[in-house]
Design a protein around this nucleic acid. Structure first.
Lengths: 340, 340
DNA sequence: TTGTAGGCGTTATCAA
DNA sequence: TTGATAACGCCTACAA
């Protein structure tokens, strides 16, 4: 069923039917109703390709997901996508997702933009110095970054970020105030900007209070439960100085810490403190009223919601200057931290 | 840069340029090279909408992700999508992803199919009796199911599934052979077909050996770490009979079991056995050579790869009869199970 | 308030 | 081996 079929059926022109369906004001209410009913009854949906060709819009946002070396999608993306997707659904936009390995990543951005498969992009997981920034600027396509890029070479772009520096500064300060001096950091990969910023916040607080950062107390890896377990085991069983507190960048990591600590017969919050960044993942369950683990929290889902709104606005109004939004994380005290 | 610009530039017709770029045989090698070079130099990419309109193809596969009540995307989807996406990238297909709540799910299938935004669908997470099956059949669009649908009302459709019945039968039998009789099952939601099949496999093995299934030993929830922790706590601390072994449907759940068991001061594999289904998630890390937890394993990533190939074939050749593929899970013995 | 006609950028059919 | 021309299905000035 195409527009012509429908208009023939109704004895109207394609123009009128099109206008009625797209909510143009000049159509009489009676006609609009007739058209809407007929469209529904005949299961008419306008061809996306034809509409896109005529309007020059794709009605879709590109999310290009880099496939890591462990051929895995970072699970942190899931909640973010869920939030963004919920908003897209409301706005009548679709997600075009492409999984790209390192080699094809920039090519994929180029192809999707040039072929007008998408109207804009969300750039997820920006690096400290990210080649995608320049590529996107050159493509002259709207985009919003979830996070920031330190070495932005002067580029101005729209972003939404959590204040990771301050979040980890405060988290560290909280531990310091409890009397901890020997604090370990289980960070994400530090070529990612969020992780670099978190480290900076950690170091700033440590320096401010004159606490020394021990050699071998800082880790930087893909954030996983396994990583948290292994690093904690190393920290707590090797000879030499041991931390009295561990700061981690993800609940996945913290979950590994918990397992290691329990396995060693230690009690979390008493023998050793754990404080984590919490993305407020759905799949960890949000049932616990009093959170077990002390955390600095900012919701990835909510960030997804907001970023989706932002890209929609940029597409609607490409000449507006870039918009920046910095979210502060909440420090939520749980049972996993205590005085030394 | 559009086709006409490029052909003008080269002094050729649009037809010839189009043919050269799309690999038609009748173009001279010399012309083809000239065209290819010019296309690259001028950064030409054919408009997806125009091409789609002319060919009737979208070049995209739809993945509609239901947004659960905890507004989360099931993290098990991530690895599956990663596998599928890798294959799509090779085949020049894109993913069109939509996040839909219950209410809009069928509408979204309808819209994407009718508007020809996608050439086919992957149906993920099928239910025991799944309304989407009939909807997809009515839409007359190619699709492949990852999993199966028990109450298929006679419909024939393409699917790829793990033999969940046999996997859980063998897993249960393994525990029974070790002398366990009091076995608990922490299953996924049993209106999902995979979970229903897993329960059937569990019950079959138990019945065969005459072992009784205790009241309160079977759980069925969204698969999360938190669920595993809570259910294990209940099982091991309430009064009445306690299990000597726990069988779970996901490593996420098993990870919660581990945490609870450690917290209770028990030793896994000695005081209590844990056996889990393992989707071979990337984010748990695949580093461990000897897996810690005994499991029945089948890779979600690999399933994604294969399902993507299957949908591509169905689209290419819609009249071929449906294809079915049943994968057997591997039973891998780790350190989490032992004799009673 | 409705209709006519042209254009969006490709691919496909014929003809040369 | 190449080219002219007609779809593909919709939107939108312009006309009525």
């Amino acid at each position: 069923m195409k527009l012509k079929d429908l208009s023939d059926l109704l004895g109207l022109s394609q123009t009128t039917v099109s206008r009625a369906l797209n909510g143009y004001p000049e159509v009489s209410e009676k006609t609009r109703r007739r058209v809407a009913d007929a469209a529904r009854a005949n299961k008419y949906s306008p061809s996306q390709n034809a509409r896109g060709l005529a309007t020059g819009k794709a009605g879709a946002i590109g999310h290009i997901i880099p496939l890591g070396k462990h051929r895995m999608i970072n699970p942190h993306f899931s909640d973010f996508i869920a939030g963004a997707g919920q908003t897209y659904a409301k706005l009548g936009l679709d997600i075009v997702m492409s999984i790209a390995d390192q080699e094809n990543e920039l090519k994929t951005y180029t192809r999707l933009a040039r072929s007008k498969r998408v109207d804009g992009f969300i750039l997820q997981g920006p690096l400290v110095d990210d080649p995608r920034l320049e590529a996107l600027n050159e493509l002259d396509v709207p985009f919003v970054v979830h996070g920031r890029i330190s070495e932005d070479h002067g580029a101005d772009y729209s972003w939404l970020d959590v204040n990771n520096i301050d979040a980890f500064d405060r988290a560290t300060q909280y531990l310091l105030d409890l009397g901890h001096r020997d604090i370990a950091l289980l960070n994400g990969l530090e070529h990612m900007n969020f992780a670099a910023f978190r480290r900076a916040g950690f170091e700033a607080a440590m320096a401010r209070s004159g606490a020394e950062i021990h050699a071998g107390f800082m880790f930087s890896q893909d954030m996983s439960e396994h990583y948290g377990y292994e690093a904690t085991m190393v920290l707590l069983t090797r000879s030499g100085p041991k931390p009295t507190a561990i700061l981690t960048s993800s609940k996945l990591i913290a979950s590994g810490c918990q397992r290691a600590i329990a396995e060693l017969g230690l009690t979390i919050g008493r023998d050793i403190s754990v404080l984590t960044f919490d993305d407020n993942f759905g799949f960890f369950g949000t049932h616990a009223v009093v959170p077990n683990i002390t955390c600095v929290r900012s919701s990835l889902f909510d960030a997804g919601v907001r970023v989706a709104e932002m890209i929609a606005q940029r597409i609607e109004n490409p000449d507006q200057p870039p918009h920046h939004e910095l979210w502060e994380a909440e420090l939520i005290v749980g049972k996993s931290t205590g005085p030394i």
